[in-house]
Design a protein around this nucleic acid. Structure first.
Lengths: 243, 243
DNA sequence: GACTTTTAATTGTCATACAATTAAAAATAA
DNA sequence: TTATTTTTAATTGTATGACAATTAAAAGTC
């Protein structure tokens, strides 16, 4: 691992890049301890603060974890699905909010992915996924529920649907798409009328999944997508006329 | 924005978190300049190196960019789709390699997403996506092509298919799934026999997209998935018997 | 042998200094 | 005046050295 002191990039960025590549290439296996900060500064011929900046860059990406104390140090971190979810969610959230992605586009992506999952989910879903979906539907029909809680329950419902596919890679991919839309969804006020409509569709989806009927699940999801976009457009239209 | 000096977490992690939340909440708009490092260290009552470690954490996530000089500083970065791709790819790659995700699981996720895209792509595809797909098919049938180049062309083909859906959010999501599988795909040796089989399927896909026939595209993709998994299993079986 | 204390290694934080970069301001020349 | 050059000031990048906090192992003690 070498760095170029005359490069235009920061030394800490170069060092982080070098270590990152070593991790990706598998040269540094999971739980391997990196040399101490003092040793790294000697190896790369830079100061300790520079090394530390590099390590913090890696820590920010969950590539390493650090521990203090005698046997401490920086260790290659096993990237967990949980860590990956979190990163995926912030990245997707910022992507949507900073790039003027329309609600419709985000919604289309989300439901395209979700319909792909529903196929698998109707084959494989297990009792607990179905139970979660039913429980969330029940929660959604409680009268006093706030809009935020309704949205959160909505996310949980769709999460169970996706997890039912039994493919962690799909779950991870979709977590971003679903949760990144939360801010937009929270802007929608869900009237009693719209809630009952959504609950009806959720019930149809759960029924279809339970009956191992992918086509019915697909149709219900398509309707839900159309309905969600319509609700959002109504909100946008209402704001435009009376700001 | 406040931090807790008695928290178990590093000061730099807390500061990074606080700024990150402000960015996500939209309190710090794109291209806004953060206070200088000296000012931040006063505000948070920490030293400059600590502030710098926090800023490097944010830079590693493409949340800010820094500039030297008189009018320099740290600026809130507009997270581009390109930056997001890159993050998505490394995260997905590490997720697969570090968590013993089977080739089959990864492949299933990839094709589930890709088939979802193909639906949209067959409705919307424009001339240039189709042209790219045809060009890559042509490249793949060149005799002297190395396995790496064949794989790269394969990625380009699927990329065009996905981009044909005209939904940047989908393209971003899938970039990870497709490119993260590159390392696994590169382990497969593509015989002349398997290449021609793949090329035939690619041609069927391109034809279906051109003819606006989502069902045919879906069927061809399903076959391609089955065939890819079979190829991979053959490689694994061959390694097991003769290591 | 079990418990306590000491020690050494390591990361976390701080203070300070200087180098490198850059845009604006000031000075100079045409 | 205008164009060019020089100076200046602000800012990030890097280095050095020091000390605090943490932790496991080693040494000591009962």
């Amino acid at each position: 691992m070498k760095i170029d002191p005359n490069s235009s990039k920061d030394l800490s960025a170069q060092i982080a890049q070098a270590i990152k590549e070593a991790i990706i290439a598998g040269q540094l296996p999971v739980d391997e301890r990196l040399p101490s900060e003092a040793e790294l500064s000697e190896q790369f011929d830079v100061s300790r603060p520079t090394v530390r900046e590099a390590l913090k860059r890696l820590a920010a990406q969950s590539l390493i974890r650090t521990q203090r104390g005698a046997t401490g140090g920086a260790f290659v971190n096993r990237l967990s699905f949980e860590d990956a979810y979190a990163q995926q969610i912030t990245t997707s959230t910022l992507l949507l909010s900073m790039n003027a992605v329309s609600f419709e586009t985000a919604c289309e992506a989300r439901y395209a992915l979700e319909r792909a999952c529903a196929q698998l989910s109707s084959q494989r879903r297990e009792a607990d996924h179905l139970a979660t979906m039913r429980a969330e539907i029940h929660r959604q029909s409680q009268p006093g529920l706030s809009d935020e809680a309704f949205c959160a329950s909505d996310v949980a419902f769709h999460r169970a649907l996706v997890d039912g596919a039994g493919n962690p890679v799909l779950s991870y991919q979709l977590a971003g798409a679903v949760e990144a839309m939360q801010p937009s969804m929270n802007m929608i006020t869900f009237s009693a009328r719209s809630r009952s409509e959504i609950i009806a569709l959720h019930t149809r989806i759960a029924d279809a999944i339970e009956a191992h009927a992918p086509d019915k699940a697909d149709a219900a999801l398509a309707e839900l997508q159309t309905y969600t976009v319509k609700l959002a457009n109504d909100v946008i239209a209402a704001r435009a006329t009376k700001p």
